[in-house]
């Protein structure tokens, strides 16, 4: 059932986490499948965290960081952005569709963008169905 889809969300404390908060405060509706983990910066996310999430049964992993230029630590999101390409390349090797891994820049004020992104991601994952690792 699509309602059982599990999304792990790694959200930057300074922006996307705030964005999710904004969406919540404004009572914007989106699918409740995401489990949010707050991190201090998208730049501290290792590819292995994404892999661990998939290994432990996540059907999709979402990473939210600050817009380019807005990083609280100057260049963390640049680092993440480069790293995310490696993650994509590696996921492809293991037969995990690259659509299951998504990242987006969302600021604290963009509650609506967070809502929209979640809805889109949920739709994508519903189409793909649950992830089956061999």
């Amino acid at each position: 059932m699509s309602d059982d889809l599990k999304i792990v969300g790694l959200l930057c404390n300074w922006c996307c986490y705030g964005g999710a908060d904004t969406a919540g405060t404004a009572r914007m509706q989106y699918s409740p499948n995401i489990r949010i983990i707050r991190v201090m910066c998208s730049g501290r996310i290792n590819p292995s965290m994404i892999f661990k999430a998939f290994q432990e049964g996540a059907d999709g992993v979402f990473v939210g960081g600050c817009h380019i230029g807005d990083c609280h630590y100057d260049a963390g999101n640049y680092k993440w952005s480069r790293r995310s390409k490696i993650v994509e390349d590696i996921l492809e090797e293991f037969g995990i569709e690259k659509e299951r891994f998504r990242h987006e820049w969302i600021s604290a004020s963009e509650g609506e963008k967070f809502q929209r992104t979640m809805e889109e991601f949920h739709k994508t994952l519903t189409k793909l169905g649950p992830l089956e690792l061999e």
Partner: peptide, 30 residues
């Protein structure tokens, strides 16, 4: 990192590929 408790997986042999070679690939394949 593969020796850390959250990745050490002695029960699963062969290991889940992404949790073993996937992690190594992300560390140093470049």
């Amino acid at each position: 990192e593969l020796n850390k408790p959250y990745f050490k997986d002695e029960a699963n042999i062969p290991p889940v590929p992404i949790a073993f070679q996937g992690v190594r690939l992300s560390h140093m394949s470049f």
